[in-house]
Protein backbone atom coordinates (compact mmCIF):
# COMPACT_ATOMS: atom_id res chain seq x y z
CA UNK A 1 0.00 0.00 0.00
CA UNK A 2 1.37 3.35 -1.07
CA UNK A 3 1.46 6.09 1.54
CA UNK A 4 -0.65 9.21 0.97
CA UNK A 5 2.40 11.43 0.75
CA UNK A 6 4.11 9.35 -1.95
CA UNK A 7 0.90 9.12 -3.94
CA UNK A 8 0.40 12.92 -3.94
CA UNK A 9 4.03 13.61 -4.86
CA UNK A 10 3.94 11.06 -7.69
CA UNK A 11 0.73 12.58 -9.04
CA UNK A 12 2.22 16.07 -9.05
CA UNK A 13 5.40 14.81 -10.75
CA UNK A 14 3.28 13.32 -13.53
CA UNK A 15 1.20 16.49 -13.91
CA UNK A 16 4.13 18.94 -14.12
CA UNK A 17 5.24 18.04 -17.70
CA UNK A 18 1.67 18.40 -19.00
CA UNK A 19 1.38 21.85 -17.47
CA UNK A 20 4.78 22.62 -18.96
CA UNK A 21 3.60 21.70 -22.47
CA UNK A 22 0.63 24.06 -22.10
CA UNK A 23 2.90 26.86 -20.83
CA UNK A 24 5.22 26.50 -23.82
CA UNK A 25 2.29 26.82 -26.23
CA UNK A 26 0.98 29.92 -24.41
CA UNK A 27 4.45 31.48 -24.42
CA UNK A 28 4.82 30.85 -28.16
CA UNK A 29 1.45 32.52 -28.82
CA UNK A 30 2.36 35.43 -26.56
CA UNK A 31 5.66 36.00 -28.36
CA UNK A 32 4.17 35.56 -31.84
CA UNK A 33 1.30 38.01 -31.42
CA UNK A 34 0.33 39.09 -34.06
CA UNK A 35 -2.02 41.79 -32.68
CA UNK A 36 -1.88 43.42 -29.25
CA UNK A 37 -5.09 41.84 -27.86
CA UNK A 38 -3.66 38.42 -28.79
CA UNK A 39 -0.56 38.99 -26.69
CA UNK A 40 -2.56 40.22 -23.70
CA UNK A 41 -4.93 37.26 -23.96
CA UNK A 42 -2.04 34.78 -24.04
CA UNK A 43 -0.33 36.45 -21.06
CA UNK A 44 -3.67 36.33 -19.21
CA UNK A 45 -4.13 32.61 -19.76
CA UNK A 46 -0.48 31.94 -18.96
CA UNK A 47 -0.79 33.79 -15.66
CA UNK A 48 -4.03 32.17 -14.53
CA UNK A 49 -2.66 28.71 -15.30
CA UNK A 50 0.61 29.65 -13.64
CA UNK A 51 -1.36 30.58 -10.50
CA UNK A 52 -2.89 27.09 -10.43
CA UNK A 53 0.53 25.56 -11.03
CA UNK A 54 2.12 27.61 -8.22
CA UNK A 55 -0.54 26.40 -5.80
CA UNK A 56 0.22 22.80 -6.81
CA UNK A 57 3.96 23.36 -6.42
CA UNK A 58 3.56 24.74 -2.91
CA UNK A 59 2.17 21.31 -1.91
CA UNK A 60 5.05 19.66 -3.78
CA UNK A 61 7.68 21.76 -1.97
CA UNK A 62 5.77 21.36 1.31
CA UNK A 63 6.06 25.09 2.06
CA UNK A 64 2.71 26.83 2.70
CA UNK A 65 4.55 30.17 2.79
CA UNK A 66 4.79 30.11 -1.04
CA UNK A 67 1.01 30.18 -1.65
CA UNK A 68 0.36 33.99 -1.44
CA UNK A 69 2.24 34.32 -4.76
CA UNK A 70 -0.70 32.63 -6.53
CA UNK A 71 -3.25 35.15 -5.15
CA UNK A 72 -1.01 38.07 -6.08
CA UNK A 73 -0.49 36.78 -9.64
CA UNK A 74 -4.25 36.31 -10.21
CA UNK A 75 -5.12 39.75 -8.81
CA UNK A 76 -2.54 41.83 -10.63
CA UNK A 77 -2.71 40.35 -14.10
CA UNK A 78 -6.24 41.82 -14.25
CA UNK A 79 -4.66 45.25 -13.96
CA UNK A 80 -2.68 44.64 -17.17
CA UNK A 81 -5.92 43.84 -19.07
CA UNK A 82 -7.52 47.00 -17.78
CA UNK A 83 -4.61 49.28 -18.71
CA UNK A 84 -4.18 47.95 -22.21
CA UNK A 85 -7.90 47.97 -23.05
CA UNK A 86 -8.25 51.46 -21.64
CA UNK A 87 -5.42 52.70 -23.81
CA UNK A 88 -6.81 51.00 -26.90
CA UNK A 89 -10.31 52.37 -26.28
CA UNK A 90 -9.67 55.96 -25.34
CA UNK A 91 -6.01 56.74 -26.15
CA UNK A 92 -6.04 58.51 -22.78
CA UNK A 93 -5.67 56.97 -19.33
CA UNK A 94 -7.59 59.20 -16.92
CA UNK A 95 -10.90 59.74 -18.71
Amino acid sequence: MMSLENEVLLFITIVIPIFLAAFIMYIVRALKGPTIPDIVLAVDCLSYDLAAFLALLSIYFRSPILIPCAIVLALWIYALDVYVSKYLMKKEMGE
Binding site: T35, P37, V40, D44, L75, Y78, V82, S85, L88
Partner: peptide, 13 residues
Protein backbone atom coordinates in the same frame (compact mmCIF):
# COMPACT_ATOMS: atom_id res chain seq x y z
CA UNK B 1 -11.54 38.34 -13.03
CA UNK B 2 -10.83 36.25 -16.12
CA UNK B 3 -14.20 36.83 -17.87
CA UNK B 4 -14.17 40.55 -17.11
CA UNK B 5 -10.62 40.90 -18.38
CA UNK B 6 -11.56 39.13 -21.60
CA UNK B 7 -14.71 41.28 -21.93
CA UNK B 8 -12.78 44.54 -21.59
CA UNK B 9 -10.14 43.32 -24.00
CA UNK B 10 -12.69 42.18 -26.58
CA UNK B 11 -14.56 45.49 -26.37
CA UNK B 12 -11.34 47.44 -26.74
CA UNK B 13 -10.25 45.28 -29.68
Amino acid sequence: LAPVGSHLLAKAA
